[in-house]
Design a binder for these strands. Structure first.
Lengths: 248, 248
DNA sequence: CGTTCTCTTGACTCATCTCAAATCTGGTGG
DNA sequence: CCACCAGATTTGAGATGAGTCAAGAGAACG
């Protein structure tokens, strides 16, 4: 694994793309200035490991752009992704030393990182960061539980369809569009990453994508670009409650 | 489902069994008095539904004794447990209206519930409750992710062994003992609840327990009481990193 | 244009599920 | 105290979805 050193750059908070959804989103101007003083931007290449499970925690900060993954590995090499980190998501734990997960860049990833000590001290002084961190952690917990339902009870085909729904929705949200018939997007994950995400093997992922393609549920252009001609059809395939169930 | 009305009782905070681990554990005497004023104890019978997914949220509070479960159900009835609520765990979400999960009493459960409005106001005024809630939510997130690894990558036999390890550890912690060879405990879950927890069918749960019994890994006395003659052996069967990996 | 990696497809195996029946357990009323 | 019942659990036999192993087809890259 060719671990390249992260690139460091600078950028100011007010025009930050994640200003209104990241851990700093409840902060006022003075708190923002404090954060500004302790932050550094770092960019990682796709495939780079940002943090190893069990190693002392060196990084806390937000994903500014790109996709990173959290994963755990069993002694014999079986691997399960347990989190997907998208722009504005927070990496690392305040007030603890070791992360129990591998953090890996799935695409090129830029992070806004904070000096850990200074960040922890700010947490103690202000309640805005901590409050936002709680909201975000609760959202992560909901996502993790939705994911548990997928892992425990869905078929391979439903898992693939569910993943496509998630990526389509996120992509639409990022571009401030509605998901609808004919949406196109690029998969930010390799087949292997998809398999790790869904608790499947690469071969099964590949077969189920082919099956959905043959059934006309998705159209593939090359191996990463997807078009969904009928989004409702994809939703049906995902196995989720058809009538929306809990609208979120 | 014979839904009995919960029993209401009273108890004072200082001698509360979960005083030092619940959401109130960082609170000082004055905050504790405030909480005391807005709390009510409620007891539910095994099998009672404490909250339905999608219904307006009526309860926020802590589990004082007993075991409750969080679960989600797919349109066609497939069911996955997504959380196990033990004494001191917090039920409900502040500042939101609907819970996305069914909350069910697995055993007789006593809750220390708070008036929602008053509780939310307290959250805004003090930081101790919110801080503790963040710690607890992070712990829940870690547990959820560990669980995802189990659901996505472990075999049925490993899943059963893992569950037994978890229950044995929790039971030992509750009685302030070490887990060791010869530990005994009672399973707080039916076979069906175990199946929902592990993403299996009850038949597979039953078969794997029988297999572990025949292999001498566990001894069963009746259907709920378990003895583990060799805890290390059970750990091996759980598939987790043998050398402890991340010691937590 | 090879080389190398990723992805797809095929053939076969096996773990887990499904359907069905037998057995056990705890509770109830006689 | 015992017989009986309903629900929970165990066990069996067969079906099947996903994994494994192996090979071939595409893409990406120098």
């Amino acid at each position: 694994m060719p671990q390249t050193a992260p690139t460091r750059t600078a950028q100011s908070c007010p025009q930050c793309p994640i200003r209104h959804s990241a851990v700093c989103s409840l902060c006022g101007p003075s708190e923002l200035a404090e954060l500004d003083a302790i932050k550094t931007y770092q960019t990682f290449q796709a495939g780079d490991v940002i943090a190893w499970a069990g190693e002392p925690q060196t990084i806390v900060g937000s994903v500014v752009s790109g996709v990173a993954t959290l994963s755990r590995t069993l002694a014999d090499g079986r691997r399960q992704m347990v989190g997907l980190l998208l722009p504005s998501d927070f990496i690392g734990r305040s007030r603890t030393q070791v992360a129990p997960y591998d953090v890996t860049a799935a695409t090129e990833v830029t992070l806004c990182t904070f000096r850990k000590r200074a960040f922890d001290e700010m947490l103690d002084r202000t309640m805005h960061i901590e409050r936002r961190l709680l909201q975000m952690t609760l959202d992560e917990l909901d996502a993790a539980r939705e994911w548990m339902l997928l892992l425990g009870r869905k078929t391979a085909r439903e898992k693939i369809a569910s993943l496509l729904v998630i990526v389509a929705r996120r992509d639409a949200a990022l571009h401030r569009r509605e998901v609808g018939n004919g949406v196109s997007f690029r998969l930010p994950l390799t087949r292997e990453a998809m398999a790790d995400y869904l608790g499947l093997t690469i071969e099964t992922v590949s077969r189920q994508i082919s099956a959905l393609r043959k059934a006309g549920v998705v159209e593939m252009h090359g191996t990463r670009d997807v078009t969904i001609p009928d989004f409702g059809r994809l939703l049906d395939e995902s196995g989720d409650d058809a009538d929306g169930g809990i609208v979120s």
